[in-house]
């Protein structure tokens, strides 16, 4: 049975994959379905949902198309989440591999730095970083990655500590391979599976952090974000609660979808490994 088939036999994984598929479809089709600037005024302000079929979800306080904002927001959330998680996994894998493989003082120093980053709540770290450097998409990605790489670094280090005692690492030294080449060509790729198993949790957390930053007005001002939409809607929460509820639900579903799909993948690969 192929891994895909096995994945599809888990209902929660199927639900997660379905949510993710919808999300990706929204993100990819955003500029096709809503080619005009989602931040431009599209109609009268605070138009309720399901009244005007050219604006199915109505408009916000400034007359912007909520559905268009939702689609473009999906794009921001996914882009930031994936970019920040990729950066965090990359930094974590490199730091963890160096620490575990080099040992001694290098390990000591790198792990103290990791400790320091881990002690500061990652959201505070991101908040401080964006406040100091200024909000733009790249900075937000960097700020989120800054608080998320420590988990992958620890997992990578633990894995490397066991791999470096294997015969094939000794074999690589015997043929005269450079220690850096051994660390990154021989050891790192074999240490990756447990590190990658963290990715769904990290992507989901990154999307939530991005939303929280935007909610506080620290997102990229030139992009529509779900967090920003929730913050916008808050001012008219009594009269038009829909404006906060819609992006809020989108956020919850997204995080849930990523988590379910990620768990499904990890479970099926774990099952496969224990079978083989």
């Amino acid at each position: 049975m192929s891994p895909l088939n096995r994945l599809l036999r888990r209902p929660e994984a199927v639900a997660g994959a379905f949510i993710l598929a919808v999300l990706f479809a929204m993100a990819l089709s955003a500029s096709l379905l809503f080619p005009s600037d989602p931040q431009a005024i599209a109609g009268p302000a605070l138009l309720p949902s399901f009244q005007d079929w050219s604006l199915p979800l109505g408009t916000d306080r400034l007359g912007r198309d909520v559905l268009a904002e939702l689609f473009h927001g999906a794009r921001t959330s996914l882009a930031v989440g994936l970019a920040a998680a990729t950066a965090a996994l990359f930094i974590g894998a490199v730091v963890g591999t160096l620490a575990g493989f080099a040992g001694g003082l290098v390990d000591e120093v790198l792990m103290r730095i990791t400790d320091a980053f881990q002690t500061v709540p990652s959201f505070l770290l991101a908040l401080a970083f964006v406040s100091v450097v200024g909000p733009s998409l790249g900075i937000v990605v960097a700020a989120i990655a800054l608080g998320a790489w420590t988990g992958p670094a620890r997992v990578a280090r633990a894995e490397v500590l066991s791999i470096r005692e294997r015969d094939y690492v000794a074999g690589a030294r015997v043929i005269g391979m450079h220690p850096m080449a051994i660390a990154f060509r021989e050891v790192l790729p074999n240490a990756l599976p447990p590190v990658l198993a963290l990715s769904s949790v990290i992507v989901a957390a990154a999307i939530l952090t991005e939303a929280a930053l935007s909610f506080l007005g620290l997102g990229d001002p030139n992009r529509v974000t779900w967090g920003g939409m929730i913050a916008e809607g808050r001012t008219v929460l009594r009269t038009a609660p829909f404006l906060s509820i819609v992006p809020g639900i989108a956020l919850v579903l997204t995080v849930l979808g990523i988590y379910l799909a990620g768990e499904g993948v990890v479970e099926t690969t774990a099952v496969r490994r224990s079978l083989s």
């Binding site: 294997r166 015969d167 094939y168 000794a170 074999g171 690589a172 015997v174 043929i175 021989e186 074999n190």
Partner: peptide, 12 residues
């Protein structure tokens, strides 16, 4: 050079 006991463990 060296040849190890377990040829499976000796290679990546």
């Amino acid at each position: 050079q060296m040849v190890f006991q377990d040829p499976l463990a000796a290679f990546n």
